[in-house]
């Protein structure tokens, strides 16, 4: 890496700010909160509740079931459910 030590230090600091947060936090959030969110989403996106948009609901339901142990993925699916099915 080029530059003087101070600019290298700030470059490293900027890099640390941009990298994704640690996956361990997501694992513990999942242990604590994923079950409740999974139940909420599986009720909201159940294909029986959306007979007019059944293919979208089935696709979302499959993805919700596959991500039932991952809180971050469930959170992004929640936004999708709100956009597509409400």
């Amino acid at each position: 890496m080029k530059g003087n030590p101070i600019s290298r230090f700030f470059a490293r600091l900027r890099f640390r700010c941009t990298i994704k947060k640690d996956e361990s936090t997501n694992v513990i959030d999942s242990m604590v909160k994923a079950r409740r969110l999974y139940k909420e989403l599986s009720l909201a996106a159940h294909p029986d509740k959306h007979p007019d948009r059944i293919t979208e609901a089935e696709d979302l339901m499959q993805r919700i079931t596959a991500s039932r142990h991952n809180y971050e993925e469930l959170l992004s699916l929640k936004k999708e459910v709100e956009l597509k099915l409400r």
Binding site: N26, V27, H69, N70
Partner: peptide, 15 residues
């Protein structure tokens, strides 16, 4: 069930 939260997260397993 506790283990599933870790083993289902391939990114964390690789980490």
């Amino acid at each position: 069930e506790l283990s599933a939260y870790i083993t289902d997260n391939a990114a964390f397993v690789r980490q």
